[in-house]
Nucleic acid binder design. Structure first.
Lengths: 248, 248
DNA sequence: TTCGATGCGTGCGCCACCATACAGACGGCC
DNA sequence: GGCCGTCTGTATGGTGGCGCACGCATCGAA
């Protein structure tokens, strides 16, 4: 039942660029390692680099008054960290925390902005990606409000699975509790339930996805909704093909 | 104690444009009425017009599986409805519901996009506004997860007050319950508490803000956090002044 | 004035989750 | 093997909010 996704060798946003644009972008990137638990951004502080993850993934976390934190997004090789820079504001709205080790392409903010201004294809890609991020953020907000811990955990595992490119990954319960904004005990119960349903197995932080389809069934439907956002904006009439940016 | 904000005569995004750009924009707008409870967008459907509210305000609502809905944003004369169009995707991620009657400048999507492509100043304004919207969306997500109904209600009343430009407005408890994603009874209790603290008064839907400062004190701090987002990106180093859009 | 519609308050049982605490299980390390 | 730190399971009491139901007050229309 478990599928073993291929380990990615590149970032999908970068890969989708036409050859020439891609080469120009890559010329300004360096490949760096993403180290588990590393903090790349702090909310309210400047963004020194942007990242295009190749392997590994990064949590976007919103800290609020009272010391509480909530994960509001997840960036893997389908996306880019620092996307809000395309809006011309060099302040991160989130903490960014490496949650799955790997590596990424990294670029300084200034060379990213310079490249962006010249590269219409890149603008178009990143606009779409930001749109998807916004939509998923709203979805997550509502899901977090209304759905049970078990369903939310299932969704989170699926999203993580998509970005981990492996059926096994390492998270302690206390870490997942932090991400979902619940107590550890809540995770214990939910994870236990998922294990008894043979959807996952875990042991001292080593989590294995046993049955993706089953997980999708117990997840709240917000996972499927996320998927549909992708599909929806790929229909030709949804995505406006004329350049809306760029001063003609 | 109650302050009576001046009734606005214009939209602030539009007003902030240089004279020439503003005139060009206005030439493509028509002024229309915003009717209470009118639905301007449906999530997942195309955006026919954009709106620059002058008076009145609009809720952005995310519907999710199971028939539940959550307000994730609020647009008044400080903003624009349809902002995600600047990302080149003509699909609304939210329902948009008129919550305070008034009027707005309206523009068709196509003439908006045409205008946007030619108007660098407008791009810059709207980028900043989208950045703020994203940041507030994340704030709302975390606030909704962690804070009590009374604090959230106080915050919501403050945000509404900012956009209503009046100390009195009309909302039934059941309506506010819908917005905050709680039962009506939860609003009854919270509103009662606020009334006993002499922060608001209400009677059959007529709500009056009696003590703004007091409301800010019982609100969760997320309101202040929202305000600081505005301040933060207005510092010169936070906002990148070179055009990051537009092919040089 | 009567009546229905609307808005508001309360009561009760229930449940998911919180806060805290403790104990067992496992693994790495010396 | 023995120790300790980490990870996981459980237990207990408490609470905020849910679901439902009922009753009352107010308002406007007939």
């Amino acid at each position: 039942m478990p599928s073993t996704p291929a380990i990615p060798t590149t970032n999908r946003l970068v890969a989708a660029l036409p050859h020439k644009e891609r080469e120009k972008l890559l010329a300004n990137c360096e490949q760096i390692e993403l180290i588990f638990t590393e903090v790349l951004y702090r909310a309210g502080e400047k963004i020194p680099h942007v990242y295009f993850p190749i392997e590994g993934f990064i949590s976007l976390i919103r800290p609020i008054e009272g010391g509480e934190n909530l994960e509001v997004g997840l960036t893997g090789n389908e996306g880019m960290l620092g996307i809000t820079l395309i809006l011309g504001v060099n302040v991160s709205p989130f903490d960014a925390l490496v949650q799955g080790a790997g590596f990424a392409l990294r670029m300084t903010t200034s060379s990213f902005l310079h490249e962006l201004a010249q590269n219409i294809e890149l603008q178009r890609e990143l606009h779409r990606y930001l749109y998807i991020s916004i939509s998923q953020l709203a979805q997550t907000a509502a899901c977090t409000r209304f759905h049970m811990v078990e369903a939310r955990l299932a969704r989170w595992l699926l999203m993580t699975h998509d970005r981990a490119h492996s059926d096994t990954f390492h998270f302690t319960q206390i870490f997942m509790a932090y991400m979902l904004g619940v107590r550890r005990v809540g995770i214990t119960k939910a994870a236990n339930s998922l294990q008894q349903q043979k959807l996952i197995s875990y042991h001292r932080g080593e989590i294995t996805i046993l049955n993706r389809t089953g997980l999708e069934a117990v997840s709240c439907g917000c996972y499927q909704a996320d998927q549909e956002i992708y599909k929806r904006i790929n229909i030709s009439e949804g995505h406006l093909h004329h350049a809306v940016q760029g001063g003609v």
